[in-house]
Design a protein around this nucleic acid. Structure first.
Lengths: 201, 201, 201, 201
DNA sequence: AATGAATGAGCGTTCATTCAT
DNA sequence: CATGAATGAACGCTCATTCAT
C-alpha cells in the first residue's frame, strides 16, 4: 500500500477536478471554460485548483492524460489480441468509435483541448506529440499487414493520416448531429479501409 | 474603372489588415491572436482595425470570406470540368491539397478559425453550416458515381466523413511537419479513395 | 454689409451642425451623442465639426447659446411688456411652457446638456452661470412685486428656486410622458404661484 | 449574531466601495466617474470592483439602493406619523431638506445618477420609474388633503410636479452655493406650499 | 489543506481629435 | 474648405494566479 491517506485524499480531489473540467469543457467549449467555471462545478474555491495543479495548463494536461488513459485501457487490449493486421485495423476503428459512444464527454473535451490549446508555432507541445504517437500506432498495424501480405503497398504516413483523419472527424460530426449512427459509421469505415488497404487482385 | 481613389485606398487597407490577420492567426493560433497583435503586424494602431471592420468578428468573417473565395476560385472550375465521378473525386482531392501547398497560411488561418470560433453548444454557427456544405458537396459526387455504376454501394455520409476527414487532417500534419510531401499525399489519397469507392469485382 | 460670402457659408455650416447636434442630443441623449453621430446626421465628415468649432465643448456651448437666444427672443419681450409683477410672473410661466411646446427638441437638448456637461466641482462652468442668471431674472420680478405690494414678504432666493425648479421639472416629465397637457400645467402653475406670492389677507 | 466573518468582510468591502463611488460621483460628476477613479479612491485595483459587484451597473444600482434606503429610513416614519395632510406635506419638505443637509454627498450622487443613467428614449429605466413613484407619493398626500377639505381643488399632477421640482432643484443650488441656508429654505418652501395648497377663503 | 479576496495584465471597443490630402 | 483615415488614451470587463488567513 504505497499511498498514504493524505495522498489518497489528494488524488480524490484531483480526480474530482478533472471530472468537472471535462464536464465544463465538453459542455461550454474550451474558450468559455474558466477556472472559476470549473471550480463552481466542483463546489470548491478557484484557488484550490491552482493549489492542486499549479496552473491551468497542468490541469488541462491532466485531463488529456486521464482521457488518453481511459481510451488506451479500453482500446489497446482488444487491438493487440487480434491475430491478423486486417482484424487489428477493424478493431482499431470499432473500439475508437465505441469509445466515442461510451465516453462522449471526455472525448469531446479532449477534442476541444487538442484543437484549442495549441500555442502558435510550438511544434513541441505535448498534444502534437500525442498526435504523432497515434499515427505511429496506426503505422505499426499497417506495417504488419504489409509484411504479412494482407495489405497492398502504400505510403504508410498517407494511409495513417487518412485513417486517423476519418476517426478524428467523427466528434465534430457528433457535435453537429448527436443522433449520428455510430454503429453504421463503424461498419462503413471498417469496410472502407479494409478495401483500401487489402492486397489488390 | 468604376472605383474611386477613396474606395481603392479603403479596400487596400482592408486587404492589408486581412493579410495581417491571416498571418497572425496562422502563426500564433486563433486564441493568441488579439487585435493588438494584428495591429502590430500591420504597423498600425489597434483602433484602426475597429475603424475599418467595426468589430473583431467582422474582421474574422472577412478573413473567412477571403480564403473561401480563394479556395472556391481555385478548386470548383477544375472539379466541375470532369466527365466522370471518379475523375471528379480525384480532382477534388488534388485541388484541395494543391490549395494547401499554394496558400498554406490562409488555409491554416481558416482551419484555426473554423475549429475555434464555435462557442459551446452553439450548433448554428456559420462555420458549422460551412462544414455541412462541404460534406454535401462530396456527397453529390458520390451519388453521381453510384448512379453511373462507377462506385459501389456505401453509406454516403460515412464515406463523405472519411474523405473530408482525410483532407482536414492535412493542415494539422502540415503544421507539425512543414516538409510533408503534399504531392505524394495527393497521389496516395486519390488511390486510396479510388479503390475504396469503385465498384468491387 | 459686414459679413463676406465666406463668412456667410461658414455661418450656414455652423447653423446646420448646431441643428444636427440638437437633434442628436434630443433624440439619443447626451451620453450617446458622439461627434460621428452628429456628423452623420449632417451628412458631413466628423473632422469638419472640429474644423468649424475647434472642439466638442465649443459645439455644445454654441448649442446652448443658440437655444438660449431662441428662448430669450421668445420670452423676454412678452414679460417686460407687462404692467404688473403678477402679470409678469404669469407670463414668465406661460412663455416658458409655451417654449417647451414649440421648441421641444432644442429644449430637451439644452436640458440634456445642462444636466450632463457639468464637470466635477467646477462651479465656474458657463452652465452654472446661466442658471444663476435665470434665478436673478426671476428675483427681479419678485422684488418688483414686493415693492408694489402685490406680493407678500418671502425670501427671494427660496421662491425663485421653487419657481425655477417647477419649470425645470417639466422637460423630464415631458420625456416620461410626451402627452403631458402643457396648457393645463401652465394654468395650474400660474394659479399656484399667484396664490403663493400674493399679499395675504 | 447570524452573519459569519466571511460575509461580514464581504459586506464591509462592498460598503467601502459604495462609499467611494458616492464620493467620486458627488465630487467628479457621473460622467467623469470611471471604475478606475472609484478604485483609486478605495486604494484598490479596478478589477476588485468587478469582483464584488459584477459590473458597473450593479455598483451604481447598489449606490441607489443604499441612498434610497437611507432616505426612506429617515423620512418615511416622520411623514406617516402626521395626523393632517398639511402637516404631512410640511414634514415631507422638511425631511427632504434635512436629508440634504445630513447626507449631502449621497444625495448629490443619487441626483447625478438619476439624471445621467437614462439613455436616450429609454422610458423604462428603473430611475424613471423611481421618479414616478416619488410623484405618486406626493399625490397621495395631496388627495388626502383634498378629501379632508384642508386643500383647495387643483390638478394633482401639476402640484406634485411643482413640489418635487422645488425639492429636486435644491441639490443643484447646493452644488453652486455650498453655504445655502437649508433651514431657511425649508421654512420658506413649507410656507409657500402650505399657502398654495390650502383651501382659499 | 483549503480558501476566496485581491490583483494586474490584457482584452475588444469607443471616440474626440489631428493632419495629409 | 473639407475630408476621412488614423490615432492613442481611456473605457468596462475577464481571468489565471497569488497569498494571508
Amino acid at each position: 500500500m504505497p499511498s498514504t491517506s493524505r495522498t489518497f485524499i489528494e488524488e480524490a480531489r484531483r480526480a474530482q477536478m478533472i471530472d468537472c473540467a471535462i464536464d465544463a469543457i465538453a459542455t461550454l467549449g474550451y474558450a468559455q471554460t474558466s477556472m472559476a467555471q470549473i471550480a463552481k462545478r466542483a463546489g470548491i474555491a478557484p484557488g484550490s485548483i491552482s493549489y492542486h495543479f499549479g496552473s491551468k495548463d497542468e490541469l488541462i494536461q491532466a485531463v488529456v492524460t486521464e482521457v488518453a488513459k481511459l481510451a488506451t485501457e479500453m482500446m489497446e487490449p482488444a487491438i493487440v489480441a487480434q491475430s491478423t493486421a486486417t482484424d487489428a485495423l477493424r478493431v482499431y476503428l470499432e473500439t475508437n468509435l465505441a469509445f466515442m459512444r461510451l465516453h462522449r464527454k471526455p472525448l469531446l473535451a479532449l477534442v476541444e483541448i487538442i484543437t484549442h490549446a495549441r500555442g502558435g508555432t510550438d511544434t513541441s507541445s505535448p498534444y502534437t506529440a500525442q498526435h504523432e504517437i497515434a499515427l505511429k500506432d496506426i503505422e505499426k498495424v499497417l506495417v504488419w499487414g504489409q509484411k504479412t501480405g494482407e495489405f497492398r503497398e502504400f505510403d504508410l504516413r498517407s494511409m495513417a493520416i487518412a485513417i486517423r483523419g476519418a476517426v478524428d472527424a467523427v466528434p465534430a460530426q457528433l457535435f453537429m448531429n448527436p443522433d449520428l449512427d455510430l454503429g453504421l459509421l463503424a461498419t462503413e469505415l471498417t469496410t472502407l479501409f479494409t478495401i483500401a488497404t487489402r492486397r489488390q487482385p
